[in-house]
Computed example of a mutant assay.
Amino acid sequence: MHIRTARALRALSVVAAAGALILTAGCSGGLAGGGDSGSGSASGPIKLGMLAPFSGSESAFGNYMKNGAQLAIDEINADGGIDGRKLELEVQDDGCDATTAVAAANKLVTDGVVASVGGYCSGATLPTLPIFNEAKIPMVIPAANSNELVKQKLPGVFLINGTGTQQAASAVKYAQKSGAKTVAAVNDATAYSKDLADSFAQQAKDAGLTVDVNAVITPGENDYSAVATQLSGAKPDLVYWTGYYQEGGLIARQSKDAGFSGTFLVGDGSVDAKFAEIAGKGYTENVLGTFTQTPDMLKGADKWIADYKKLAGADPGPYSTQSYDAVKVVAEAMKTAKGTDFDGVVKALEGLKDFKTLAGPLTFMPDHTRSGGGFVIVSIDPSSGKFVLKDDLQG
Results as ranks from 00 to 15, higher is better:
193 S>F: 10
193 S>E: 11
193 S>D: 10
193 S>Q: 11
193 S>W: 10
193 S>A: 15
193 S>V: 15
194 K>Q: 12
195 D>Q: 10
195 D>E: 14
195 D>G: 14
195 D>L: 12
195 D>M: 12
196 L>G: 07
196 L>T: 06
196 L>S: 14
196 L>V: 14
197 A>P: 06
197 A>D: 08
197 A>G: 05
197 A>L: 06
197 A>F: 03
198 D>L: 15
198 D>K: 12
198 D>A: 14
198 D>Q: 14
198 D>Y: 15
199 S>E: 14
199 S>K: 15
199 S>D: 14
199 S>Y: 10
200 F>M: 04
200 F>A: 04
200 F>C: 04
201 A>V: 05
201 A>I: 12
201 A>F: 04
201 A>S: 07
202 Q>C: 04
202 Q>H: 09
202 Q>P: 10
202 Q>L: 13
203 Q>R: 06
203 Q>W: 08
203 Q>H: 07
203 Q>I: 02
204 A>W: 04
204 A>D: 05
204 A>R: 03
205 K>Q: 04
205 K>Y: 01
205 K>G: 03
206 D>A: 08
206 D>M: 06
207 A>P: 13
207 A>D: 08
208 G>F: 07
208 G>T: 10
208 G>M: 14
208 G>E: 15
209 L>N: 00
209 L>V: 02
209 L>Q: 00
209 L>G: 02
209 L>F: 02
210 T>M: 03
210 T>P: 07
210 T>C: 07
210 T>Y: 03
211 V>Y: 09
211 V>P: 05
211 V>F: 06
211 V>A: 04
212 D>W: 01
212 D>A: 13
212 D>T: 13
212 D>Y: 06
212 D>E: 13
212 D>R: 07
212 D>F: 02
213 V>F: 09
213 V>N: 07
213 V>W: 07
213 V>T: 04
213 V>L: 13
214 N>S: 14
214 N>L: 10
214 N>G: 07
214 N>Q: 08
214 N>M: 12
215 A>L: 00
215 A>F: 03
216 V>S: 08
216 V>M: 04
217 I>G: 15
218 T>K: 15
218 T>C: 04
218 T>I: 09
218 T>Y: 08
218 T>N: 09
218 T>E: 11
219 P>N: 09
219 P>G: 09
219 P>T: 09
220 G>M: 09
220 G>T: 05
220 G>V: 05
220 G>D: 06
221 E>F: 11
221 E>M: 12
221 E>D: 13
222 N>F: 08
222 N>I: 11
223 D>C: 00
223 D>E: 00
223 D>R: 00
223 D>N: 03
223 D>S: 01
223 D>A: 02
224 Y>K: 02
225 S>R: 02
225 S>L: 01
226 A>T: 04
226 A>D: 02
226 A>E: 00
227 V>S: 10
